[in-house]
Design a protein around this nucleic acid. Structure first.
Lengths: 400, 400
DNA sequence: ATTAGTAAGGAAGGTCTACTAACAAACATG
DNA sequence: CATGTTTGTTAGTAGACCTTCCTTACTAAT
């Protein structure tokens, strides 16, 4: 069967009737109450990012009237999400403003990172991402339902460790996970077609959000990382290589919720081997020459073990070039301005990053490349946890 | 100045205060009337794609109540966008349904394609994309304001040729154009910082929408081309190479409204030259080895001129492979399921397309690659015009 | 023919949302 | 001290959708 024959889309013999017969996209009705929820999120968003403001400030920022904002704020205060903070100190003309602020330090979230194969890492965090307590749970090789049980126990443990009201639970896991927190497949945990978010929401009695770990990482970077308003791509380097893309404030999920799987793009093949280049190595995905065979932490550590700094830099630069090759078309096609790397700085934040940036710039339109920033993630080693927390902020409060 | 030093994003010395200080993204308030506009578009969308329906059908499809749908439909009928079509013929239990349908054949749009350097091509089309009349206007080398005048005259000419009410004017132009129809730069026409949509809307007295030609092409493919609901990328091959990407029903614009500039991704560089591969050729963008130096129509014609069919296929396959190299990372990162090529079938729809698809499949995760469809655009030679028409449908009626 | 059941479409009334208009409170300034 | 400015609230209005109930018109069964 040739590649041509297996192509699903092709020109039909007769031109199809235009404008009819296409499956309707899942568009949803919008009710006034949805509009209100949106405006409510707008107010929270402003308070989260800009800090305490007066109701009049919020009205100016959102475009709503002072009356409407007052109404929304009173609801938020009643819910305990917002508090009055007294009168604004600065003296200006007119009636002094009473500041209201989001109670980011009086509310907490539970965040869990499932990236590691050996143990689950969890934390209780404030809404600003400050870690209040940590817990871990060893998997001891458990998978499937047993792994779910370990996760649930860890969540209960963390909920008990929280000393403030918990807004929700956020979980970042490897694997393919849809927007409802349904795990399509997570081979490392032995999960297939598992409604994890729904299950835990029921069991724990409060909202649980689950998403792919690289995606949550990107969301966290977008929320906490001071990224510009447009678009953002985060490449996470760990056991494997993943990526998350945020465009227009929301995650790109892709047709099968598998967006970001950049680790298995081929960057070395036997036709490309040149002097000084590595041979294509077999990859866990069954093929060879994937980016992940060079850029994952095990691969980087193996390649740099026992080398001089100069040799190490050469190796890292070579990997950086491969990363740049894979990034250039993506940066061009999406006109991305911001790409960030997440992982150990000692491996990534040197020759590798420099060469990756140089490669992308050399291989894209000057206009695009010059605007590009390729930096390290602004989140520290708790980036995955911060991402899980951002997942709660986004899903629960509409704040990104 | 090294590449590293010019990186804008970097780790600040002290961790920044999280959750504050980030420039607020341009989020807008939502009023109940916006909700109504959305629901109105939902009804039109259904009627456009699914054909005539009863009010009860529309209520079921949208999730709104029959009362609300009846109200929306009566407004749409009053506006002349929708008409009652009598009773549904099929006999079922209950009161027979009266069908209502969008008046797609009783309304027209004016579409203009500015892709050609020598002349502007325009057409009057029905809402389903059927061409009613054509007009062209020679540019004779005019640029800047003179070219705008030619365009305006062509539009007036087309408006006069329309024999039904015209909903709006859609224009697809090369260059960087923002979402308001403001031309940031269109070097081929000598336009820089030109509010073209606003200008023509004022001059012509009806709504004018302007967007990049590759983007309109993608939108047209999405609207008229029977594409699946998820995502879509269209690669247009003409004088140059462009691309447009539709995700979640809306165009990807990118940070500087330059998304889709895939023609200037480097696919051949002097480090990559192997036996049988072309040398990197200089490109109009000032660099060398861009995809456009191989895949544009002039390049393809030059490469295949005077060759035997076998030689020609080999050349085209080689170009297809380069296209596949550029597409693979994009397909992986976005989990795209649908890529379509637009251009002369005799050049694209053979060895080139087959090799491009094979290359993408070989270089991406099996899960992603197998799902991928890489076909020809379902729009014919009027694809650019259909795209411009889709621009009007989308911008004016909310139908995509 | 008659009765029952089903579906379509419309009318009345209620709730929710955000708006405009007007006003009192509290302060800076001349 | 009078004046102007800004804040936040109260009261009233308009829009949008909902639920409920009704009429109309047909099919299916008796």
């Amino acid at each position: 069967m040739s590649a041509t024959e297996t192509t699903r889309s092709s020109r039909p013999g007769a031109p199809a009737l235009r404008g009819v017969g296409r499956a309707l996209r899942p568009t949803a009705k919008v009710l006034p109450e949805h509009a209100r929820a949106h405006n409510r999120a707008l107010v929270l968003q402003h308070l989260f990012h800009q800090g305490p403001s007066s109701r009049a400030d919020l009205a100016r920022a959102t475009g709503l009237t002072r009356v409407t904002v007052s109404d929304l704020v009173s609801v938020l205060i009643a819910e305990g999400l917002v508090a009055e903070l007294g009168v604004r100190p600065e003296g200006r003309v007119g009636k002094p403003a009473t500041l209201v602020g989001m109670r980011t330090e009086d509310l907490q979230v539970v965040a869990v990172d499932l990236a590691d194969d050996a143990s689950l890492r969890g934390a209780v965090m404030t809404l600003t991402g400050v870690v209040v307590a940590r817990r871990t749970a060893a998997l001891d090789g458990r998978t499937g339902d047993d792994a779910v049980a370990v996760l649930e126990d860890l969540c209960r443990d963390l909920l008990a460790a929280a000393d403030r009201p918990v807004v929700g639970v956020g979980i970042g896991s490897p694997g393919v996970i849809d927007s409802t927190g349904f795990v399509v497949e997570a081979p490392n945990r032995g999960w297939y077609d598992l409604p994890l978010a729904e299950h835990l929401t029921t069991r724990l009695g409060l909202p649980v959000h689950v998403a792919n770990d690289a995606n949550t990482h990107a969301l966290g970077e977008y929320t906490y990382g001071g990224a510009p308003g447009d678009g953002l791509m985060v490449v996470t380097v760990g056991q494997g290589v993943g990526a998350g893309i945020v465009l227009d404030g929301s995650l790109v999920r892709g047709r099968a919720d598998a967006a970001g799987e950049i680790g298995h793009v081929t960057v070395v093949d036997d036709r490309d081997v040149r002097a000084g280049d590595p041979q294509p190595r077999p990859c866990a995905c069954g093929r060879a020459g994937c980016l992940e065979t060079l850029l994952s932490l095990p691969a980087l550590r193996r390649a740099t073990a026992g080398t001089t700094p100069e040799e190490s830099d050469a190796v890292l630069a070579s990997v950086g070039r491969k990363l740049g090759l894979a990034l250039a078309p993506v940066v061009s096609a999406l006109n991305l301005a911001e790409v960030r790397l997440s992982g150990p700085a000692e491996l990534l934040d040197g020759a590798l990053r420099a060469e990756a940036l140089a490669t992308v710039r050399a291989r894209t339109m000057p206009l695009l490349g010059q605007d590009l920033a390729l930096g390290m993630s602004s989140l520290d080693e708790d980036g995955a946890l911060s991402g899980a927390a951002a997942l709660v902020l986004s899903g629960q409060l509409g704040v990104t």
